[in-house]
Nucleic acid binder design. Structure first.
Lengths: 158, 158
DNA sequence: ATTTCTGCAAACGCTTTGCACCGTG
DNA sequence: CACGGTGCAAAGCGTTTGCAGAAAT
């Protein structure tokens, strides 16, 4: 017996793998290695990531940067992912589906990002009025900016 | 009489000019023609504008594009203006000071922008918790995205 | 077998930087 | 006069595109 149920310490990994597969299928996207890996990264570590960060995380097996751009584009097109802009000209991406909604607190000095947990998303009213105007595929982007304590001390004298 | 109080049909323009001058002085920025013109544009037509749009608006007297970048940078640095990102890789700028706060509804198809009026800004809670974490110069960016009615009909078949 | 994803190379476009000159305070 | 804003030219860098080959359905 033992192997009958196939349960083991890799169960969580398998579940994530299945979830990722399901997400891709639901989005009608072909299941490829890079799509799987990148979606998994967005799923597991749910911070928003830039293309460079994703490549660094992929390590030696990394694919071509162009592929990352195209994978992310396919995610955004199918609304699996959402693009974040932190006002530094670098696009970052995070999972749009499923997981608990959250927003970001971005330091305008060092660009470090913290997460802001919030019970109710304050944009629902605004999204509703967008839909009332006939808009579809409504989404939002909400970021808080500020200078973190660390950067306040480091700050160059004006 | 008539001229005693110096009132006339250009009063509004003069008031705006004075306001703009005062804003620049308050920001400790030198009063130059381009700074005045660009700040006035942001003040009067308060949509967020890209560098290209600002240049087009300036017309034949337009300055060098580089100057627009530098002027806007000085505005952001002194917190006179705020940068908006509509997820298309083009930076847009709007006045941060004074005028009634508003957010944007951006069509992901044609990129047209509508304004969303709102009584109370829903980000105050989030900004407060940012300050509670020791952040200063706290600000936010909130944009709503969607596909406008027009673009829904124009949409190419998938 | 057909569709579409990937890699490589090159192009693109917004933005930034260096330097000499001119304008503001 | 001193400081900093401006124009011009060129570089920087994230991102997009074209095309041939590989992979998925």
């Amino acid at each position: 017996m033992g192997s009958v149920h196939g349960t083991g310490k890799t169960d969580v990994q398998q579940q994530i793998g299945e979830k990722v597969t399901r997400l891709l299928a639901g989005a009608k996207l072909r299941l490829t290695r890079h799509r799987r890996d990148i979606l998994r990264l967005l799923w597991e570590k749910h911070g928003p990531f830039s293309v460079q960060e994703i490549l660094r995380w992929m390590g030696p097996d990394a694919c071509d940067p162009v592929t990352v751009y195209r994978v992310l584009e396919s995610f955004v097109r199918t609304r699996l992912a959402r693009r974040c802009d932190f006002s530094d000209g670098i696009a970052r991406y995070e999972l749009a589906a499923g997981d608990g909604h959250h927003h970001h607190l971005v330091c305008t000095g060092c660009r470090r990002v913290e997460e802001l947990d919030i019970k109710e998303c304050p944009t629902q009213k605004l999204e509703r009025s967008a839909r009332a105007r006939g808009y579809t595929k409504v989404d939002h982007s909400l970021e808080i900016f500020g200078l973190c304590p660390r950067c306040q001390t480091t700050a160059v004298a004006p």
